[in-house]
Structure formats: C-alpha cells, structure tokens
Design a protein around this nucleic acid. Sequence first.
DNA 1: CGGCACCTTGATGAGGCTCAATATACGTGG
DNA 2: CCACGTATATTGAGCCTCATCAAGGTGCCG
Lengths: 243, 243
Amino acid sequence: MPSETCAPDQHPCRHGRTEGGCAECRVRLVSVCAALTGDELDELEGLSRHVAFDARQTLFSQDEEAIAVFNITEGAVRLSRLLPDGRRHVMGFALIGDFLGLALPERQTVTAEALSPVAVCRFERRAFLDLVTRKPHLLQRLHERAGYELGLAQDQMMLLGRRGAEEKVASFLLGLRERYARIGLTSVTLELPMGRQDIADHLGLTIETVSRTLSRFDREKVILIVPGGVRLLDLGRLKRLAG
Amino acid sequence: MPSETCAPDQHPCRHGRTEGGCAECRVRLVSVCAALTGDELDELEGLSRHVAFDARQTLFSQDEEAIAVFNITEGAVRLSRLLPDGRRHVMGFALIGDFLGLALPERQTVTAEALSPVAVCRFERRAFLDLVTRKPHLLQRLHERAGYELGLAQDQMMLLGRRGAEEKVASFLLGLRERYARIGLTSVTLELPMGRQDIADHLGLTIETVSRTLSRFDREKVILIVPGGVRLLDLGRLKRLAG
DNA sequence: CGGCACCTTGATGAGGCTCAATATACGTGG
DNA sequence: CCACGTATATTGAGCCTCATCAAGGTGCCG
C-alpha cells in the first residue's frame, strides 16, 4: 500500500496543500498543468492528492480499470507490457514531470512500477475527466502532449526496427540525458535507475548484449560505468555511435 | 498535383456536397466525425474539400508545415520516416476511415504517400483547429483516437523488439485483416496495396526475409500468394505463428 | 520485343541470442 | 562488522537467425 504522506527528506514535498501547492510545483512548467491559470490551478489542486511509493511498488497494472491519473514529482517509473507468452517489453520510463494516463483510457495499457522512491500527484480519473471536459484548453494541452508521446513512440519504433545494438544503447543513453536536461538535471553522471534487464527489454536486446555493449563503451573510454549509472566521457563519439 | 474532382468510377464519391455529404459518408461511423451531431456535421462539411490522389502521389512530406488534415475515404496511404543517414522506416499504413493529422502537429512527423488511387476529405488545419476549439467533444473524440493510435504504436514496438521474422509477418497479415474487417471488408483474399519493401521497412526486416517468409507460408499452405495480395488459407495456424 | 520495377531464390557470413560460469553488490541476521 | 544468501551484472563459447551479396525470374507498359 502506498503511504499517503510526503516523500522522505531527500525528496522535499512541495505539493502538500500546506506548503504552497500546485502554484509552486517544481514540475508545473514542464507538465500539463502549464495550461492552467491561477484559478484553474487551485481547482486542480483540490482534486490532487499527494502519494508516495516505495521502490518496486506497483502504481497500476496492465488491463486493470484506470481509477486515477498521475503526475510524477519525484523518482522514476517503469512502464511495461506483458505478452500472453510471458515475454515482457518495457515501453518506456517515466521521469519527473511526466504524466501517466495522458490518453485517459478506461483500462491501463501498461503496468507502472516504481524504480526508486516515487512521489506523485494523484487525480481521480473521473474527477479529472470532469475537469478536462470543463476546461477545453487543458484537454488541448493533454492532446498536444499525447502527440509528443506519439512522436517519441515513432522514434522508438525506428530504433527498434532499423538499428544495431551499439546504436540502440548509445541512443538510449543520449535520449535519457536529454530528458534529464529538460528537467534541469545536467550532471555529467547519468543516473540509471533501471536495471540492465529493463534496458534490454526496452531496446529489444538481451541483458547480455546490453552489458557487453556498455562494457565495450567503458573499455573504449566513451563512458565510465559507476554504481547506479554511467558517466558520459565522450559525447561526440557517443553521438556518432548513435548514428 | 492532386485533381480536385471525385475519384474514378470504381471509387464512387459519396462525399461531394451534391451527393449527400458527410451525413451519408461511408466512413462516418468509423471515423472521428462520429462525435458530431447533425448541425455540426454540416459545419464540418463546409470546411471539407474532396480531393483525389493518384497512386504514388505524395499527400505531404515529413518536416514540412502541416497545412491540412485528411480523412481517407478510399485507397491506402504509406506513412514513413527518413533517418538522416537514408534509412527509412514505414510507421504504418492508413486505410479507409483513418485520419491523418490526428495529433494536429504544426509540422508533419511523417511522409504520406498514396499506394493506390486515394480519395480524402481535406480540411484546412487552421479552420479545423478552430472548429475543434469550439467543439470540445470533437477534440475529445480526436484525443480518444490518438490514445488508440498510441496503443497501436505500443503493439508495434513489442512486435519490432521481441519477435522473429515469422511472427512479424504473420502478425502483420492478421493485423491488416482485422483492420479491413473493421471497415466491413471481410473477403478471404487480403489485399496488399504496399510492396514487399514497404512491409520489410515496416517490420524491421529486409525485403528478402519478407519474401522468403511469405514463400514459406505459401509452401506450407498457410496462405496463397496471389497478384496484389494473399489468400489466408489457415487462420488458426497463422495465429499460432503470430504467437 | 525490350526495358524497368518488383519479386524470388540461393550461398555466405556476422551480429546477437542462448547456455553456462563467475563476479559484484546488497540486504539481513548473527 | 562480518558471513551468508539473493539478486543483479559481467564474461565466455557456440550456434542460429537474419542481413548481405548475387543471380535470376515475373509482370507490366511503352
């Protein structure tokens, strides 16, 4: 069960109603909430509930009814799908500022699991749907964002279909770096909250190939493997490897 | 240049204003227009312009400004993306009833080319955007549909990442069959308006592998290759091959 | 009939998967 | 703090699928 309190100390909660709320939210500008004006933000805030999840907790599961939508304010989430025969594919990773349930489907199309301690703004789907119906420009913003996601999905399809292992891994690292940059995290060290198996299942490779490829990059001093992530040593070469 | 007249005889035009218009449109119920009531349908019709394209004509190109959105009423369209290095990936194929420009992006993310003679309802993007802004439930319908597309994109990612050539080709045939069924075309013979290279570029395979796989299916009497398509002889086995 | 685009088939090899054996990190309890 | 067990990651050897290269084959249109 998720605790209904704020995240631990290293993840200061700025979403609690008592601490400023949505208007001061650190992810407001990069998220869908950016569509809203002051009054509307207050209304949105009324619907929100701050929830924290421990690492490995499930936010929701594939095929179950979608009861809520989420805006991630801390941590990383793995989005995966299961095939009937047991094979898994990791559709992507949701980071700070990402919105889960963008398409407002009745049933979840993926399983969402916390890769690290995660904090979210949680909205009842029903109530959020009502708000969206009353605020067309929120829907517009949601739709815009869905279009962006569709573009990402297309990029990923090209990656999966047309590229070799080196290109896949290099592109993955660069893509992640770019996403961190968008939310203001430009450290030289790239955090990898997901495991090798997750990366493999995301790129359509085996864990062995991912591990070998990273090892080779390390050996050739393109990256440096560190606990919990990698340090990008030679961006130029990494970009050439990504094609 | 696309001719601005109705499609040739074998594709009777039921979209011309003089012949009933949107209210009698054969794709109305399967398309986004289904969201609209009588009055609104009239308004939509006012914005529409019926346009025909010959096979091989380009409807629009990747990266160019999106001037219009389209609702396909006849024919098939190839949606592809080009990598800087020249590799191509076919994101998908749009059939009767499909809507091009769902996400309403400012620039096209794909190139759309007619695979056969194509007829469309064309809407100026600007005017369509205005209508959408005034009709939230049209936007809702659009968004719903975008969510559906996102789901398809996810299916395609699983296919590309986790499956072998046989599974890919079998899934492709079954998927196409299902889409034809949705628009009321349940013939035993599956039309393949796209070439082998297009299928290969869609599935992340080479043309040789696609050809060999289809040949094998034919040899094993799962399908029968006929000019312009295939006949599905053993659906059960094809489904098992698709996993 | 010839030219062209598209498709099929064959031979060969490389990239990535599979199987198997360690190695490392992490959490737990002594 | 260390010993242990578990989960995760790395590395190696061999094989298999699919890409590559190359040569016909088929159908269509001028």
